[in-house]
Design a protein around this nucleic acid. Sequence first.
DNA 1: TTGTAGGCGTTATCAT
DNA 2: ATGATAACGCCTACAA
Lengths: 329, 329
Amino acid sequence: MSDVARLAGVSTMTVSNVVNNRVKVSEAARERVLEAIRASGYQVNLTARSLRSGRTGVIGVAVPQVGNPYYGMLGALLIDEAHQRGYEVTIGQTGALADGEAAAVAQSRWLQVDGLFLSAIELDPQMPLLADAGFPIVLFGEQGAGGRFDHITLPNEAGAAAATGHLIDQGCKRIAIVTGSGLDRLNTVTRRYNGYRAALEDRGLRPDPELRFALDSLSWDGAREAGRHIAASGLGVDGVVAFNDTTAIGVMRGLTDGGASVPGDVRVIGFDGIPVAEQVIPALSTVAPDHHWIAARALDLIVGRIADPAAPPRQYTAPFDLVVRESTA
Amino acid sequence: MSDVARLAGVSTMTVSNVVNNRVKVSEAARERVLEAIRASGYQVNLTARSLRSGRTGVIGVAVPQVGNPYYGMLGALLIDEAHQRGYEVTIGQTGALADGEAAAVAQSRWLQVDGLFLSAIELDPQMPLLADAGFPIVLFGEQGAGGRFDHITLPNEAGAAAATGHLIDQGCKRIAIVTGSGLDRLNTVTRRYNGYRAALEDRGLRPDPELRFALDSLSWDGAREAGRHIAASGLGVDGVVAFNDTTAIGVMRGLTDGGASVPGDVRVIGFDGIPVAEQVIPALSTVAPDHHWIAARALDLIVGRIADPAAPPRQYTAPFDLVVRESTA
DNA sequence: TTGTAGGCGTTATCAT
DNA sequence: ATGATAACGCCTACAA
């Protein structure tokens, strides 16, 4: 910058003012500065600007896995919303482990963000780390930290209940659930299971423990194996509520491997509304939370809190649609 | 930091030395500093550290769309490889437009990275912007900038030829290609088309212009529409080489919509090897480049060039596997 | 082993 | 309208 100033025969302040379109700069000076910038190939050093301003203009997005279609979709939406508000985004992976999530907050890189969207699956929200982060955090997921943070959650009970009710409406009597582990804790798995159970009981059906399949990990292979098992089990399953769309796609694949047809023998419904769900054969019915809404709300919360750190924390539950397609026809 | 120093009764340099495990610090001093850090909740300001050191420890990854399964998968792998080398990653979207890619380089945020992985689809590599970036760039895609940059490309001709050859081996005679637009330029679309055409000609088949479907955008809907059209066209198509896996999944969906069975009536093969390709019904055959190889190589190139900016640029083509599944059985 | 001085590049403030 | 000064927080170089 001082090179530019020297070249243009002005002070660095004038260069700064030109670069930032700040106060009045005479046309003559502006011209010379712009020419000097062109000639020297000067580019602002944002690191220095950040040091000076105390703000980086970057919002962090920490999700379990970038490669997961769901988080990929969400990440894309968050990037768009952030850009609209003049922020850049840096995306990190937590691996869905409490350690990873703690690390996501502690991690060097996050120390430079102006705010963080943290998809917290296992993180203990009591941990002091979160409160001491020094920047606003919006939690996404079940871990609401007792109302001490801005928080967006999915409509897990209501969504799973709607999915289960839809299967019952379609005539299913023996409805299995393929979900993750950890039903002992208050997490997404538990909430969706509770919705499933509530819908069954509402309609006079009894949840059968034999029809609950808890996968150690929500991998494609685990879901596929569960589908195969359901097809071969002789349990008389005629409907499956899957934890999410990828699980549902794996289950459909496994059912097909095992010779069961979808939806002829078994109807299947997912959760999330990832784009590929509409393309698979049969097209997957699903509970689709409004992800545009989520991304917009998340950025509103972050930007709002940057502006007013003392405002009371707010909690939201996303709206959703029940999307009926071939897999539950 | 000076707060900590005051609290511990030492100078800021001693604090710095403790934080960085630098030179010798007496046990007594170290203890007091650590205690002061704990008491004050001090955290290093990485912005200041970066300003001082001139390095940020961040590598940028610019891809067309984060929500695309292919780039999601690649992004996840790049993050892992970067972490192994002590770097953080920031991901940005270019939107696959030349403007977006130019912006990706120019964009404020990238000015703070130590290196950039740029998936360049349309970017004119001649533009001075790239050369003046001030940090190492690894190009990924067709735009190799005439050997002036480190560059990784996919095995487009060879992969598409292998896919086409496989369909011929399976007995297909009328093989369509569903691809993107822009066959006039040297890009991924053209290279894969060239591989398709070469394989046909090698085996004594004549490429039929009627069997070339060039989608304006490689969206799900466009591919699905192409599939429907192929099913209804009466062109006698018995095989489809799709530009990539998402296109292939859309085509299979459209063929099914149109009453054609896969692989019974039409065999379909994709390109990329995204995870969901294995789960769809029928499971999708595909050309799968080795993405671990790509991610590892990309980081090697970036880290290598950071260490030695003057080294001659290197070009690589990724290896691939032909993965045969149900869709071409 | 510890401390002092200075500067990385920017911009707010005050002065001219 | 423009410029001089100082400070953001850290770390290299040098001194004690």
